[in-house]
């Protein structure tokens, strides 16, 4: 199975970043190329050497959801960042920053986490997505 998977990663909350990382790692493990396009707050989570962030969750998580996520992390669940790093180790995972979002957040190429492979516009994203599936997270 080598059908490509394209993900627009818009959200910057830890739960959605984790979900995107899990889907990416699973696709990479079965040989599907994955192309991730970082937009808005998704890109904001990929700053290099950023100050340690407070854990952010989607509003529906509530205090109980936060406690559950904290418990899983304490039990040793791999972070979204580690999961993506390992996905890159086993498969073809290309992570690209949306150039509009780079402007919005006033970021340059040196401001990005080493997991990010480059900067591209939306046309390059659709070329990479080609006939494969597209997810918006």
């Amino acid at each position: 199975m080598d059908e490509p998977l394209a993900i627009s990663l818009f959200s910057g909350t830890d739960d959605k970043l984790q979900a995107a990382a899990v889907l990416t790692a699973g696709a990479a493990a079965v040989g599907r190329p994955v192309h991730i396009f970082l937009q808005y707050w998704g890109l904001d989570a990929f700053r290099a050497n950023g100050a340690p962030r407070e854990r952010l969750l989607a509003p529906e998580a509530g205090p109980e959801g936060l406690a559950a996520v904290e418990a899983l992390a304490t039990a040793g669940q791999a972070s979204w960042h580690d999961t993506l790093a390992q996905a890159k180790e086993i498969g073809e995972v290309d992570i690209q920053a949306c150039s509009l979002s780079m402007d919005l957040l006033r970021l340059g190429p040196d401001d990005l986490d080493p997991l990010v492979d480059g900067v591209e516009g939306v046309t390059a994203f659709w070329l990479a997505a080609s006939e494969g599936q597209v997810l918006f997270i």
Binding site: A25, A28, A75, A87, I90, G91
Partner: peptide, 17 residues
């Protein structure tokens, strides 16, 4: 053991290489 999804498969894919 004690690894959450998808890490068992990810570690397996790394090991089998």
């Amino acid at each position: 053991r004690n690894l959450s999804c998808p890490m068992p498969i990810v570690k397996t894919a790394i090991a089998i290489k």
